[in-house]
Design a protein around this nucleic acid. Structure first.
Lengths: 249, 249
DNA sequence: ATAATTCTTGCATGATCTTGCAGCATTTGC
DNA sequence: GCAAATGCTGCAAGATCATGCAAGAATTAT
């Protein structure tokens, strides 16, 4: 692996997670910690990231607000949100999961568009309430502290009584072979119920999360109808997903 | 965990709660109190927060939240919230309605107190999720755009399956003769269901709202067990409520 | 093609940073 | 004023960092 690739990987990680540990980098790159240290030092000299004891952070890490995200990722998410909104049409009844990408979608829905949206995400609900023509129905249940997301039997139960047009799932980990995966067992129960409740399933994913796998599986790729990324649909990174009967935008 | 992450966490807490205790930080971060002390000292040197004996505060703690309207009213609400929190005890299951006063209550609940709280208010749920020991269950339903409050049959139905220790109702209009009133029909359905679901009903009201009446009636004063105002319980403004079997604090 | 040079990488060493603890000073609440 | 809580300092163990060095890879000069 070239030095350049390594440094790009390091930068990507920093942009994605806002902070990295030298040890983790050393392990995932299969190089000594010294090499990583030197790379980070170099990147820090070029002001590409900020070096701290034991790792590195993105600039503005301290002022970083959860709801703002960083510019690098943010632009990708906005691109995804724009494409996603184009899938919506007046009067539809849809389901939206949580995650920052879905929040962007909510922000980007036209002010005059009438929709009915069910969601188990506090943040998404909050955004949707800014739109006067959108009827927002919260799928109540036990809330997860970190994700601000309702899970549990109540949510799944409510979902089992629905049959909606569209289900928009954000922030999952995606892999052509293993399908859609998550790291939280309770969340996948809800997402599975969401998929069951909808005629059509749309997955939003920034390209960083393609080809990454987590512990628990939400569904196969075959259950997905549309995959939205920030990439051009012709991009080679998406080749692995072409064998499935899904729309790439 | 990186030092930067710790310091960011501390700053976030300070911004959120306007004051933190070193002990709480030490516990939630799983580091010694000395480390927290050093971090706070460092942040204080950078003028990111203000260090005080036993903890830290945000700058301008005294005049905080001028942007959220009336400081005068705010201080009353904080006084009410303090009294209300004293009614709570470990392990209780409670209901909380919406409103800014209830948000203050949520902010003032001790970090270590374990509670289970049901609420139909997005804002209150949001605040409660900052408390690690509080289990938050959102009562899902159609959300009102302005109040960010869930109403409708789903909410009432969920409530009919509950029997909790305490119900805390904020922002109502109160009159000794006409009882508790509201201006929104859907909201009173929910509040009535909340009262029915609880063994004990607590009403929070700033004194400005005493002796004012709105269109729809939630309940009689006789249904109220505790009335919390910012006033001294002996204040003559409360005389009208003394004939009822309720606790004034 | 071969040799010299430069670059890169991993390892060893000692320096520096971080963190928790113990002992004593200071502040706070009663 | 007293007891308890909080704060400060120095110290020690462990982690992290900087530096020099050597072996191998890539590049350049001859």
């Amino acid at each position: 692996m070239l030095k350049e690739e390594r440094q790009k990987f390091i930068l990507d990680q920093v942009h994605l997670h806002h902070r990295v540990l030298l040890n983790d980098l050393s392990e995932s790159l299969n190089v000594s910690i010294d090499t990583v240290r030197r790379d980070v030092k170099e990147l820090a000299k070029d002001r590409k990231l900020k070096k701290v004891h034991g790792g590195a952070t993105s600039f503005g890490f301290m002022n970083f607000r959860k709801d703002e995200g960083n510019v690098y990722l943010q632009s990708k998410k906005i691109a995804i949100a724009e494409k996603t909104v184009s899938l919506l049409s007046e009067g539809q009844v849809i389901l939206m999961s949580g995650g920052t990408t879905n929040m962007e979608v909510a922000k980007m829905i036209p002010k005059k568009m009438a929709l009915t949206v069910f969601t188990p995400s506090l943040h998404v609900a909050m955004e949707l309430l800014e739109l006067p023509e959108v009827e927002v129905i919260f799928l109540g249940g036990k809330l997860l502290h970190d994700a601000k997301f309702a899970v549990g039997g109540t949510v799944v139960n409510s979902l089992s009584q629905l049959r909606v047009d569209l289900c928009i799932l954000g922030t999952g980990y995606l892999d052509a072979e293993f399908g859609l995966t998550e790291f939280d067992w309770e969340v996948i129960q809800v997402k599975q119920a969401m998929i069951r409740a909808a005629k059509k399933t749309v997955i939003l994913s920034v390209s960083d999360k393609l080809h990454s796998v987590q512990k628990y599986k939400t569904c196969d790729m075959s259950a997905v109808d549309v995959l939205v990324t920030e990439l051009d649909p012709a991009n080679e990174l998406l080749d692995a997903f072409r064998p499935f009967h899904l729309q790439l935008i």
